[in-house]
Nucleic acid binder design. Structure first.
Lengths: 275, 275
DNA sequence: CAAAATACGTAACATACGGTACAGCGCTCC
DNA sequence: GGAGCGCTGTACCGTATGTTACGTATTTTG
């Protein structure tokens, strides 16, 4: 049963030539607003010519463009009248691979934040925003990208942010630069990496404040950590999900940014100038 | 403060002559759909003549009818994009920094997947699992970690997966290795990077299949992409959120893994042995 | 590798849309 | 009761819009 134009597009996008597919993607990307504008605007947004747009709506089964627009408007009207219908993500029963995966991920996030108090987040953000020391970030085999992501953002708003990459010997030697005013952010989920644990222990001995992102079973590093963020990772997949930790990371980035607003704004402006 | 056209009308309907008032009432009655139709339809519905509609629109402060329609559309678009905003007129009282951020992120994910059909995901997964060619991944300043994350997983279950890192000159030269059987996964959100666009164009010319992860405004690379994944990125923070794209990436990783189950399992076993 | 089929964009076309001038009508206020 | 003002609709105009035909480029197939 196809009830919306969006579904219609999803159903037929596979059979469309490149140009029309771009039209379809553009429409879906900001659905349905672009479809309400003129053919010229639509074609410009999609980067194709007007006739391609018309062929596109024709392939969807409409006689002409106005008829297509009317259909979109009717759909919109129905949607607006019953806000309840906006039950995002149609609980499509047949559901392929995506829905259960997404549902599990959303649940993970809710659970993760449920066990994470505002105060704890504020504490950590405060620690990261405290500019008397340096910030080091490192992750495991699959979580290192999260460390990179966080480092990329933090480095924009403050100095002395370092992502520890490369071979173990490389970052192990950076220990001498670390002291009790510094913060070490570690990402470590199953299967926990010994090398990280060794590193964390040594850093801890030097008085470094450790912020640990781990899963709900807690990496052994937790015993050395000052702050532990335990994210849910279970999803119906062969892999664990780091999405919840990713969102916590983004939240922290946002909080730190807010705290460093004044200084951060100046830094960003300077950076822009340097380009 | 007047923020919507509906309020504007309520504010001025008292000063309007009879005909225009009927126009106003008709518009408010089925707001805002009638305003998106033609002047003729509007006038017929209101039972007045076309010029009366135009005078009505003019009295609201618009230069012409299209400008009025655009304004209505913008309003609608804003309303559609943040379903939460409507119900959150009075946000949770205690509200620290986390909840709104989390809510927005969850909404982003739901919206992102809403516009992403199972079939499209399956298509992309199939392409990534097709082992006749190589897979290259690359990202922008803040999204490159996502490319790394995906590469780290894909590389475990199949060969010929390469993350393009380092200086532009480094990966630009890898173009010679790319052909029409290969897949290039690009992450590019605002502010879009020119270097990536150049790279994508050249890869496209070589017949490489491009899978693009971008935001809802679509990176210019979309014109070269065979598959476009448009994720929502808006959150109450100084930064855009890549969390939705991250979840899509994890979903794809899971789907590809499932498709390569047999081969992948063997590979993983071999890898374990190698340790 | 050749040939056919398909898809795409340019350019010309017709229509219908928004806009405007003008005349008729009703209303109000001397 | 008459004169003035203002609102409304009819009729017409210019134009921007949707539409179509055709030539070229690209891909697919034998």
């Amino acid at each position: 049963m196809i009830s919306s134009i969006a579904e219609l597009i999803a159903d037929r996008i596979g059979t469309m030539p490149a140009g029309e597919r771009r039209a379809a993607q553009t429409l879906v990307a900001s659905y349905p607003m672009i479809g309400l504008k003129t053919v010229a605007e639509f074609s410009a947004a999609a980067g194709v010519s007007s006739p391609t747009i018309l062929r596109f709506v024709s392939r969807l089964g409409f006689q002409n463009y106005p008829e297509f627009q009317s259909s979109l408007q009717d759909e919109l009207a129905a949607q607006l009248q019953s806000p309840a219908t906006r039950t995002l993500i149609a609980p499509s029963p047949g559901g392929g691979t995506a829905p259960p995966m997404l549902e599990a991920t959303l649940d993970n996030m809710r659970e993760t934040f449920k066990h994470l108090s505002d105060r704890q987040l504020a504490d950590i953000a405060g620690r990261l925003a405290d500019r008397r020391g340096k910030t080091f970030l490192i992750g495991g085999r699959f979580t290192d990208p999260l460390a990179r992501y966080m480092a990329a953002h933090l480095a924009v708003i403050q100095s002395d942010v370092f992502h520890l990459a490369g071979q173990e010997s490389m970052w192990r030697d950076r220990l001498i630069d670390m002291g009790k005013r510094d913060v070490l952010v570690i990402f470590d989920i199953r299967r926990y990496q010994e090398s990280l644990a060794r590193f964390a222990e040594k850093a801890h001995q030097r008085g470094v404040q450790i912020v640990l992102f781990t899963d709900q079973w807690l990496s052994p590093i937790a015993r050395f950590a000052r702050h532990v963020i335990a994210g849910r990772t279970a999803v119906p997949s062969a892999w664990d999900s780091s999405a919840a930790l990713f969102v916590v990371a983004e939240t922290l980035i946002g909080a730190v940014t807010r705290q460093l607003e004044a200084e951060g704004a100046r830094r960003i402006r300077e950076m822009e100038d340097l380009r």
